[in-house]
Amino acid sequence: MSRKFTQIAFTPAVKAAQEQRGSRETYARFEQNGPENDTVTPEIEDFIAQLDGFYLGTVSSNGYPYIQFRGGSPGFLKVLDRKTLGFADFKGNIQYVTVGNLSENDKAFLFLMDYRHRKRLKIWGRATYVEGDTQLIERLKISGYEAEIERAILFHIEAWNWNCPQHIPIRYSQQEVDAMQARIAELEQLLANTNQLS
């Protein structure tokens, strides 16, 4: 657990709740002794490179959170430097809720989940959208995906925290299921051939 994370997440109300419920002393030690995790590590970079989706949270002017799933081929969320992530924002349902929220409040949150390996990473930061920067958009393009890119979204990391894997259900992508089914069919055929020879 990092100090940067606790500085953002442990508001006075959270600390009061911890105090009332007996966990404040434990988390106070983390606040004093934990590392200041606010940069991308090799482990995080590898984790991000394998993801085919994540959840992006923004805040509206009326104070409500807005959570949106973003998906693409593995690697579509890119590490641009040790404190910046980015992805291409494609033309979609043209509601522009994320864009509107970010135009008023740049606080944002990424929730990255790997169901197969039961790992999740929470990242707090500030996000901006960039329109008309062809060089940046080219850098964020997904190879072989021809949808129209309207803008780039950059996420500037302020803190991250790996979260406990307890209760994460194991799920597989369709590609992984297809590969397993193909392997099962291959092994069944091999077994059938072996039984015919016996």
Results as ranks from 00 to 15, higher is better:
E176R: 05
Q189K: 11
R151A: 14
A179M: 04
Q189E: 15
R120V: 04
A147H: 14
E146W: 09
I137G: 00
L121C: 06
G125R: 11
M180P: 00
E158T: 09
E158D: 13
K122C: 10
L121G: 08
G132S: 07
W162K: 05
A152R: 03
D178P: 00
Q135K: 12
M180H: 07
I142C: 07
K122N: 02
E158R: 13
G144F: 01
N163A: 02
Q174T: 05
R183C: 02
A152E: 05
F155N: 06
K122A: 13
K119T: 04
A152N: 12
E131D: 04
R171K: 14
A179K: 09
I170N: 03
I142V: 15
D178Y: 04
Q181C: 04
V130M: 09
K119H: 11
I153G: 05
R126S: 14
F155G: 01
Y172A: 04
I168F: 11
R151M: 14
K141G: 03
H156R: 13
D178A: 14
Q181W: 09
Q181A: 08
S173V: 03
G144S: 00
K119S: 03
Q166H: 02
V130Y: 14
H156Y: 15
R151Q: 13
A147N: 13
L121F: 10
Q175N: 07
A127M: 01
W124K: 10
I123A: 04
Y172I: 03
I149M: 15
K141V: 04
G132I: 04
L187A: 05
R139I: 00
T134S: 15
R126W: 02
A185F: 02
V130Q: 13
Q174M: 08
Q189I: 02
E148F: 12
G125N: 07
R171M: 14
L136Y: 05
E158S: 06
L136V: 03
G125C: 14
V177C: 03
R126I: 02
Q174V: 12
Y145T: 08
A127C: 04
I170R: 15
G132P: 04
A185D: 10
I170A: 11
E146K: 15
R183S: 13
I170C: 10
Y129F: 15
F155Y: 10
E186A: 12
E188P: 00
L154S: 07
G144A: 01
I184D: 07
T134L: 12
I142K: 11
P169I: 12
I168C: 08
E150F: 01
H167F: 14
K141I: 06
R183N: 08
Y172H: 14
T128E: 15
W124S: 02
Q174F: 03
I137E: 13
I137S: 11
R139N: 08
A185V: 03
E158L: 14
H167P: 00
A182F: 05
H167E: 09
A179H: 02
A147Q: 15
E186Q: 14
Y145L: 13
A179W: 02
A152D: 11
E148I: 01
N163Q: 10
A185Y: 08
E150Q: 14
G132Q: 06
A159W: 05
N163Y: 01
H167W: 12
W124G: 01
L121Y: 07
Q175D: 09
N161C: 06
W162V: 07
K122H: 09
R183F: 01
Q181D: 14
Q135L: 08
K122S: 08
E176Y: 00
F155T: 00
I142Q: 15
E176P: 00
